[in-house]
Design a protein around this nucleic acid. Structure first.
Lengths: 225, 225
DNA sequence: CTCCTGATGTTGTAATTACAACATAAATTT
DNA sequence: AAATTTATGTTGTAATTACAACATCAGGAG
């Protein structure tokens, strides 16, 4: 079915599996692949799904339509990433987002039920697949909780400090860089960019941290209230 | 080891398993149980964990310490609920929260690695356990995404409308009740209660919906923009 | 090097919110 | 039923934010 599993080997879902293992595995779980052209809908908001997407080629965009009709981009996924797993495993939950092919793409679909149902031959790779899947969802869970932690703060200042504290902890250092430019950081914090810049200036003047581009140095002695 | 599995049968983690199945299962995965007194720490923020907690008796509280030292309650779990799964499955992730026994409690700890590692006897119940676990984490994932969706709105009005839209969709109806009183709703939306009340009055006057206690009726024709 | 472009910082204003203080309504206790 | 407590609504004010408009800076192209 799948002749070249090299992409899959780079996917977190198949991490730890050899080429041979992956091929065996794909034979025992129900998969099919499909090509999408740019802009084509892969999963449509409102419908339930029972399969997970693995990006073999190209990239996809997760979008959401506001109740007032505005489209917003929630995430972008590239080759090797998986998507749809949260809805595929939650029975009957209707998709609240839409997945669209951002370019020419090829997607491998895996039936969610086949992931936890052991194949007749009880292949040992299956156990690793499940482990990977659990880790992926668990990790997403933590990332989502981090964002909620940040967004639950009511001021730009506290959101930013909360975000920086998490980054500092992740890096085990007072000095670190973040994967955002100002606009992206503002988007993550759900605040206005210029208001964020303004607040960052104030915080720097007050000695909370120093920042240059996306590199921060936290002065924790002053950062605590 | 566990003589009375009645609590476990009510737990979503063991849903679909009979008493017999559950007992068999518990023999093939590594478990141990422990009693906690009120206020005792079950999982401490900062340390990584490799086991999941299942509440056999009592209830627990998930708390978080702010960078300025303020404690806030993030969640409360009762008998049958599980907790810690996100961190237990994410290797090396340090807990960002603390779990505390809210009353006298008894917790069953399950080694996370044993959940996806098949036992020698390859018991068929194991498959169901994995299915349940995946569904639980996936469901939490969706709930977290819903909250982020709400919190990403920048005004009380839009947060509330976003929240109500989700509730309406879940109930497949323009008429529904929510599981919050005003203060709890304000806490969920991360806004001031009185400001929320104020905005709700305005929205009612403008004909977006009518509300009595925790029962809402949405007038969608006006609700759009 | 100069021009151009995109990213970032600054400022003023209108809108929104938090907060406090109080009013009213509903539920509970006695 | 009266008294008490709790939940909810209302209002004014100070603080914060969004937004727009513009200034400055850095990098790349010519």
């Amino acid at each position: 079915m799948l002749t070249d599993p090299s992409v899959l080997l780079s996917s977190p879902l198949f991490q730890g599996l050899s080429t041979k293992d992956t091929i065996s595995l794909l034979q025992c779980i129900s998969v099919n692949r499909k090509k999408f052209s740019q802009g084509e809908v892969i999963f449509l908001s409102g419908e339930p799904i029972n399969r997970i997407g693995v990006i073999l080629q190209g990239s996809i965009t997760i979008i959401k339509e506001d109740f007032s009709g505005n489209r917003s981009i929630l995430a972008e996924f590239v080759k090797g990433n998986i998507f749809g797993e949260a809805f595929a495993f939650s029975n009957n939950e209707k998709l609240s987002v839409t997945a669209i092919s951002a370019s020419e793409s090829e997607i491998l679909f895996i039936d969610a039920n086949r992931i936890f149902t052991f194949c007749a031959s009880a292949c040992p790779y299956h156990s690793r697949l499940i482990e990977n899947m659990l880790k992926i969802i668990a990790k997403k869970n933590i990332v989502l909780n981090e964002k909620i932690d940040v967004l639950s703060k009511r001021t730009i200042r506290n959101r930013l400090l909360s975000f920086l504290q998490i980054q500092s902890q992740k890096n085990d250092s007072n000095h670190f860089s973040i994967p955002f430019n100002r606009q992206e950081l503002a988007d993550y914090l759900c605040v206005d960019r210029s208001a964020l810049s303004n607040e960052m200036s104030k915080l720097q003047n007050e000695g909370f941290f120093s920042v240059s581009k996306n590199e921060f140095t936290i002065y924790s002695s002053k950062g605590n209230k």
